[in-house]
Lab assay of single mutants.
Amino acid sequence: ELREAFAKVDTDGNGYISFNELNDLFKAACLPLPGYRVREITENLMATGDLDQDGRISFDEFIKIFHGLKSTDVAKTFRKAINK
């Protein structure tokens, strides 16, 4: 299930999730959020999830993000976006 969610976000299939891919995910989900809020959520996920600070999120980092977000608003938003 997590591998499928990761693949859905990794639209270019390079094995990593970029800032733009995350941002595009939230935009495509048509969530009722202003653009600046989408950017804040994306920046927050990148800042906390990109553990090796290479500017992208690997599958291992994605798993840690996903499990670390349990019930936060960001987690709910992220799950809604993935499930669209």
Rank of each mutant, 00 (worst) to 15 (best):
29 A>Y: 09
78 F>L: 10
44 N>D: 11
48 T>G: 11
45 L>K: 04
6 F>C: 00
6 F>R: 00
73 D>P: 11
54 D>A: 12
22 L>D: 00
16 Y>G: 01
15 G>Q: 02
5 A>S: 02
18 S>T: 14
81 A>M: 09
46 M>F: 10
54 D>F: 05
48 T>W: 04
30 C>T: 08
77 T>Y: 06
40 E>W: 02
11 T>P: 05
40 E>A: 06
64 K>L: 03
73 D>N: 10
84 K>Y: 12
47 A>R: 12
33 L>E: 11
17 I>T: 01
56 R>N: 08
29 A>P: 02
22 L>G: 00
24 D>L: 07
45 L>E: 03
14 N>V: 04
76 K>P: 14
70 K>L: 13
76 K>N: 13
38 V>C: 06
29 A>C: 15
46 M>W: 07
56 R>S: 06
60 D>M: 03
23 N>M: 09
52 D>T: 14
65 I>R: 02
15 G>T: 01
51 L>G: 10
12 D>V: 03
52 D>P: 11
42 T>C: 15
11 T>V: 13
79 R>T: 14
25 L>G: 00
52 D>C: 14
49 G>R: 10
63 I>E: 15
23 N>E: 15
40 E>I: 01
33 L>I: 12
40 E>H: 02
27 K>M: 04
7 A>G: 03
6 F>H: 00
84 K>M: 14
24 D>Q: 08
65 I>S: 03
18 S>W: 03
83 N>P: 14
80 K>A: 11
72 T>V: 08
51 L>S: 10
23 N>S: 14
48 T>S: 14
25 L>R: 00
40 E>Q: 11
20 N>G: 11
18 S>P: 05
19 F>M: 12
43 E>F: 02
63 I>N: 12
58 S>Q: 03
59 F>K: 02
80 K>F: 04
15 G>V: 00
10 D>S: 01
62 F>Y: 01
71 S>W: 04
50 D>L: 05
8 K>C: 04
66 F>W: 12
75 A>T: 14
47 A>F: 06
54 D>K: 11
58 S>I: 00
12 D>C: 07
43 E>S: 09
17 I>Y: 01
40 E>C: 02
61 E>S: 09
74 V>N: 13
47 A>L: 09
35 G>T: 13
39 R>T: 09
14 N>Q: 05
35 G>C: 11
6 F>G: 00
80 K>E: 13
9 V>K: 02
78 F>T: 15
50 D>V: 07
13 G>F: 03
35 G>F: 07
45 L>Q: 03
52 D>W: 05
21 E>Y: 01
78 F>V: 11
35 G>R: 11
